[in-house]
């Protein structure tokens, strides 16, 4: 216990990141009680209104009120990032495990596939998929599309960790004491991988967010749901910046910066856990 406290004390960023997420959660929980989320739809407010007492963040050119827009949008965006990141992590971990633990042909196959998939820019592939089904894109299938290309980095990380762990003595001891592969994986390897899994999840969520928001900024996102990326797309589309409508483009940007800053804080807070050598730097 005192050791984990020592860890947090050395890595206050972890605490900062978690606190930022708790704030965000509170916004999502309490927000809908005081904000009328139905006004995030088009023509529910007078268009192009500056922020005022009634509309704290004003409205956009198609009559969405922007505070509810931000509430709904940030939640959707995070949903996409988390879903895609989690799926990517699970699939990647399984593949990385199989590759690292069993080695041989399976390993070559999975590793090569990961290398190829990593080299082909995700955005390019996503653009091809999304442009075909643009009209029917929604939050859920966007998350799935992004997830399809989120498994490679987790697979690589986990594979190399498993490779280095496989040869260590405790695995040997477990094997000698008659445990089978499955028991070794679940009882010996998985617990030791937890710090890497945590760090990898944060990375996967950040990567998925990056891909999803990027696609949306190109207009390839849910056409009717005001995710943060789509809001930026509409800003660009209607020239919000050139028309001086800062209240339209600034909130999604601040929200995106906030989410990435929180993820950054958490991941650098976890860094030392995953790479104990970093400790010496401080």
């Amino acid at each position: 216990m005192s050791r984990s406290w020592g860890y947090v004390r050395r890595n206050p960023l972890l605490l900062v990141g978690v606190a930022m997420f708790i704030l965000l959660l509170l916004f999502w929980l309490i927000g809908p009680q005081v904000i009328d989320v139905t006004r995030a739809r088009p023509i529910s407010a007078m268009a192009d209104q500056r922020p005022s007492a009634e509309m704290p963040l004003g409205s956009d050119s198609v009559g969405r009120e922007l505070l509810p827009n931000l509430l709904v949008g940030s939640l959707y965006t995070f949903e996409i990032g988390l879903t895609a990141g989690l799926i990517g992590l699970v699939v990647g971990t399984i593949l990385g495990f199989i590759a690292g633990y069993f080695g041989g042909v399976i390993d070559s196959f999975i590793s090569t596939a990961a290398d190829v998939a990593l080299t082909i820019p995700a955005l390019a592939v996503l653009v091809v998929i999304a442009s075909v089904i643009k009209e029917v894109l929604n939050v859920r299938n966007l998350a799935l599309i992004v997830a399809a290309l989120s498994w490679m980095r987790p697979a690589r990380t986990i594979r190399s960790q498993v490779l280095s762990m496989r040869e260590r003595s405790y695995v040997e001891i477990a094997r000698l004491s008659g445990m089978n592969d499955w028991q070794i994986i679940v009882q010996e390897l998985l617990p030791n991988l937890l710090p890497y899994l945590a760090a990898t999840l944060v990375g996967a969520v950040a990567g998925a967010l990056l891909a999803a928001i990027g696609l949306e900024a190109m207009g390839l996102g849910p056409q009717t749901e005001p995710t943060l990326g789509m809001t930026i797309f509409w800003c660009n589309y209607y020239g919000a910046l050139l028309r001086g409508m800062w209240w339209w483009w600034a909130p999604p940007i601040v929200a995106i910066l906030y989410v990435f800053a929180a993820l950054f804080a958490i991941s650098s807070g976890l860094d030392e856990l995953a790479n104990p050598r970093l400790r010496r730097a401080r």
Binding site: L210, I213, A217, I256, L257, F260, F264, S268
Partner: peptide
């Protein structure tokens, strides 16, 4: 600068 490292360029 480090904090901005994960922020998309276009933002």
């Amino acid at each position: 600068f480090l904090m901005m490292s994960s922020v998309p360029y276009y933002i």
